[in-house]
Every structure is written in structure tokens, then in C-alpha cells.
């Protein structure tokens, strides 16, 4: 368990949040022109990084807003949170 600093509500327990998976996966602009391989890449393939990873989270039991998070998956330490549409504060 860890604390998450919701960009809208401030620090809350992780149990108030829902993880939404890898962030910055761009929806295909021309879905009809995608090959099967590209669909597989978009739908199923995930980086699943051991280390620093970019993620989406939703404060489901709070403001219900989505935001992004940079987190080290090897020790669950959060490096940064930032709003949807914003550029990641660290690389």
C-alpha cells in the first residue's frame, strides 16, 4: 500500500484509486488502415517495465478524474503525478 498525491485532491490512500495501465498509448488515428500486427501492438502489447514506468490512474473513490503517474514498479515509489494532457515532468 502506498499514498498517492492526486493532482486534484491531494494525498490519499492508494485503495481510493484504480490503476488504468500504461500511459501515453495513442489511439490509432486511422483505425481502418491498421494491420493485424499494429492492432495487436495497440491492444495487447505492454512495456511492463521493471523500473520507472508511465501510468494512468483514476481517483475512483474521490474526484473520479484521470491523471498520469510516473512510478518505479520495482519498489512502488512514485516519482511524479501530472494531469492528463500535460507533458511528463521528468523523463
Amino acid at each position: 500500500m502506498f499514498l498517492i498525491n492526486c493532482p486534484f485532491c491531494g494525498e490519499r490512500e492508494q485503495s481510493e484509486f484504480k490503476a488504468g495501465g500504461e500511459a501515453h498509448i495513442v489511439r490509432p488515428k486511422q483505425p481502418t488502415e491498421l494491420s493485424d500486427d499494429e492492432w495487436a501492438e495497440y491492444l495487447f502489447i505492454r512495456k511492463n517495465i521493471k523500473g520507472v514506468q508511465f501510468e494512468r490512474w483514476n481517483h475512483v473513490h474521490g474526484c473520479r478524474k484521470w491523471f498520469n503517474m510516473i512510478r518505479d514498479t520495482s519498489n512502488d515509489q512514485i516519482k511524479a503525478v501530472y494531469k492528463m494532457g500535460e507533458k511528463p515532468p521528468v523523463k
Partner: peptide, 14 residues
């Protein structure tokens, strides 16, 4: 399972 990716071999208390 927890719903987030983690390699920490620790899960959430809830």
C-alpha cells in the same frame, strides 16, 4: 491481484 503493475512482491493491504 492488485490492479497496478509491480515487481515489489508486496501487495496492498485492502
Amino acid at each position: 491481484t492488485d490492479d497496478y503493475v509491480s515487481y515489489s512482491q508486496k501487495g496492498s493491504h485492502d
